[in-house]
């Protein structure tokens, strides 16, 4: 059964349709990559899943419950998100920001239990930010901050993890580490990525958006074709299988 189901999701801002009847499923333990050129509606679709935006049509379901009709607090226990939002306003410590991931599970100012503190510590260790625990978040580099925010999303213990461009600011080591971690993270993952090669390696399925419409969906081998790159991304490129894993990899040749 699909854990997360975008069911005919539509979003219009004024007259403009940003997302048009998008239907997409993410199964348990599955990593689904949402790819597409700039302005194709990827972020808008994700915003509906983490409740920052109310869709104008369709539904977002988790295990057949409609998220869009749930109190925010309830949906926050099911879906955690890494948004594109930049820095925090205040100089919280890394530890404090990660602990805020427990907010939907706690009443008011109720302190974290020993289990929850251990959960935070593990998430920080997993994202390699444990040594930064006492540092102020405003003094972190972009990549460090990104890893702290992923750790915060992990301690939310969601059923579905939504990540909007998680590899932004990350160095190669941390890009690969984060994406390989997603594979066995437990919850279903819906992620937008710009790097198609990383997307092909990290995702079980890829969904391609173009002008708000789903134009292809399937395994990376099915989806990533030279024809699709030409039509949806406007790019002439060669697609070759990876010599070790066999997943499709995109090679670009810049024009003469």
């Amino acid at each position: 059964m699909a854990r997360l189901l975008l069911d005919g999701l539509s979003v219009s801002l004024g007259e403009t349709a940003i997302v048009r009847e998008l239907t997409l499923a993410v199964a348990e333990r599955q990593v689904v990559g949402l790819i597409g050129p700039n302005g194709s509606g990827k972020t808008t679709a994700l915003r509906c899943v983490y409740r920052a935006l109310r869709p104008s049509g369709g539904a977002v379901r988790i295990d057949d419950r409609d998220l869009t009709r749930m109190p925010l607090r309830d949906s926050a226990r099911l879906v955690a998100a890494l948004t594109q939002e930049g820095r925090a306003d205040l100089d919280f410590t890394v530890e404090e920001v990660v602990a805020l991931g427990r907010a939907p599970h706690l009443r008011g100012n109720q302190p974290l239990s020993a289990r929850e503190r251990e959960l935070c510590r593990r998430a920080m260790a997993q994202m390699e930010v444990l040594h930064l625990a006492g540092r102020g978040v405003l003094s972190l580099s972009g990549g460090e901050r990104q890893r702290v925010l992923v750790a915060r999303a992990l301690v939310q213990e969601p059923q579905v993890l939504v990540l909007d461009e998680p590899t932004n600011h990350l160095d190669l080591h941390h890009q690969i580490r984060l994406l390989s971690m997603l594979k066995d993270a437990g919850p279903g993952v819906l992620v937008t990525l710009h790097d198609l090669n990383l997307a092909a390696s990290a995702c079980d399925r890829l969904a391609v958006l173009s002008h708000g419409r789903l134009v292809a969906c399937g395994t990376p081998a099915d989806v990533l074709t030279e024809e699709l790159l030409r039509e949806s991304f406007g790019v002439e490129a060669s697609v070759v299988p990876h010599p070790l894993t066999g997943v499709p990899q995109v090679l670009y040749a810049l024009g003469p």
């Binding site: 920052a52 109190p71 955690a80 948004t83 306003d89 919280f92 920001v97 907010a103 100012n109």
Partner: peptide
């Protein structure tokens, strides 16, 4: 205000993040 302490913390992370953390 003191009772809203943690919600104010979440608010400082931004509006999008607040929604994803269950703060209206």
């Amino acid at each position: 205000l003191r009772r809203l302490g943690r919600s104010l913390d979440v608010l400082a992370l931004g509006d999008e993040t607040s929604a994803s953390l269950g703060v209206d």
